[in-house]
Amino acid sequence: MAAMFSQNPLMNGPNYSFNDAPRTAAPEGARQHRFDPYTDNGGSTLAIAGADFAIMAGDTRLTSGYSINSRYHPKLFKIGGTTADQKDATIVLSVVGFAADGEALKERLDAICKMYRYRHGKPMSVKACAQRLSTILYQKRFFPYYVYAILGGLDEEGKGAVYSYDPVGSYEREQCRAGGAAASLIMPFLDNQVNFKNQYEPGSGVGHALQERERKPLTRSEGEILVKDAFDGAVERHIEVGDGLQMMVITKDGIEEVLLPLKKD
């Protein structure tokens, strides 16, 4: 089970995020064939929080093994609107991993948000929704939803908020997060470009005198370009990522959705 949730690509030699490596021989040479309720449907997601916006993004490819099942299978979902078309939603959930669990998780969270709205006559805050999502995931601790979820929206002060999760509900509010198959490719890029990790003021000295580049929040257009670059890079290096880039930008005026092409190879 531990290997399943590992993001380490070098666990048993170079491999892909789905497990096609032969297992180590079973004890006594016995091989038991039984139902495996999980698969990995590949794909990658990404979220960046800005000063007054949040960007959520994900590719639209759905794979199983080396097959592309669908070139358009969204991983981003608007949550908690009044109607089925989610026109007035203010929160976006992205899920990547096992697609069927992702869908079940999305529908559960959405139903909970809709019940909240019905009972309280107001939409759920991102903070409350984030906490609830953690509880949902943890409740299935011993038969987990095999998904890496990211929740995005605007907090009570109107600032961009991104919450990221592991499959069993540990969560944290962050400035940015990449999830899924190409997470290990995208995250370091984000560390460098969003949080300016390993960037220093030129000529500020050497060793301890070296000054870190001052962090300042991204503008919306900078964020969108960064997302596109991150995915273009991931598409080149990961076979499970590609086809289309779905992006949702959450601002005080609502959610804007953009669909951009990615390489289909």
Partner: peptide, 25 residues
């Protein structure tokens, strides 16, 4: 659209199950 034994579902302009996904798709 397609559904499989794990509940994974997706849609596409053309679909094939089993060998078809490699040969016909």
């Amino acid at each position: 659209a397609s559904v499989d034994l794990r509940g994974t579902s997706f849609t596409s302009p053309s679909l094939a199950t089993g060998f078809g996904s490699a040969l016909a798709q």
